[in-house]
């Protein structure tokens, strides 16, 4: 089978697959603080002072925006073991949409779905673009955030 046909066959089989809601993750104060430190924002009272944070629109210590992009088992094409012929992998892009704040103490569950698997010709040869969409829900079942991730295999 040619590589193009193989990718089309894999796409037909895998696009639309979902992980289902996985194991919940609690947003912990210490984890938020370490994340803030990693992005050079460790002194921001919003991420370390619950009294201060409670006076803001968040009403508590919020999660820094990209905290969940890789902190949960669900969140990219890696959740699916897609049998693609190329192994080198880079992240091409992220699109995060926030519907409501996620705060320390919240418990988040995520569901990832494969949106597309496409082969394209790049400067350095064949590349396969895999797009997934992950929806993040809080303990009340409310949709808080969506992340659309594009991963490039080459």
């Amino acid at each position: 089978m040619s590589e193009e046909k193989l990718v089309a066959k894999i796409a037909a089989e895998y696009v639309g697959r979902e992980t289902g809601l996985g194991e919940p993750l609690e947003i912990e104060k210490g984890a938020v603080r370490r994340f803030a430190e990693a992005i050079f924002d460790g002194n921001n009272p919003l991420y370390r002072d619950a009294d201060f944070a409670s006076q803001t629109i968040y009403g508590g210590i919020p999660m820094p925006p990209a905290f969940l992009t890789t902190n949960m088992p669900s969140g990219s094409e890696r959740d699916f073991d897609i049998p693609l012929p190329l192994t080198r992998r880079v992240r091409g892009g992220d699109e995060l949409i926030f519907y409501r704040p996620i705060k320390v103490g919240d418990t988040i569950r995520a569901n990832t779905r494969i949106l597309s698997i496409e082969e394209k010709e790049g400067r350095s040869g064949k590349m396969i673009f895999i797009t997934t969409e992950t929806n993040y829900y809080n303990q009340h079942g409310e949709l808080c955030m969506t992340n659309k991730v594009t991963v490039v295999k080459r």
Binding site: P65, V90, G92, G93, E95, L96, I97, F98
Partner: peptide, 8 residues
Amino acid sequence: LRRISCRY
């Protein structure tokens, strides 16, 4: 922050 999209 309502939305942020980035291409690397």
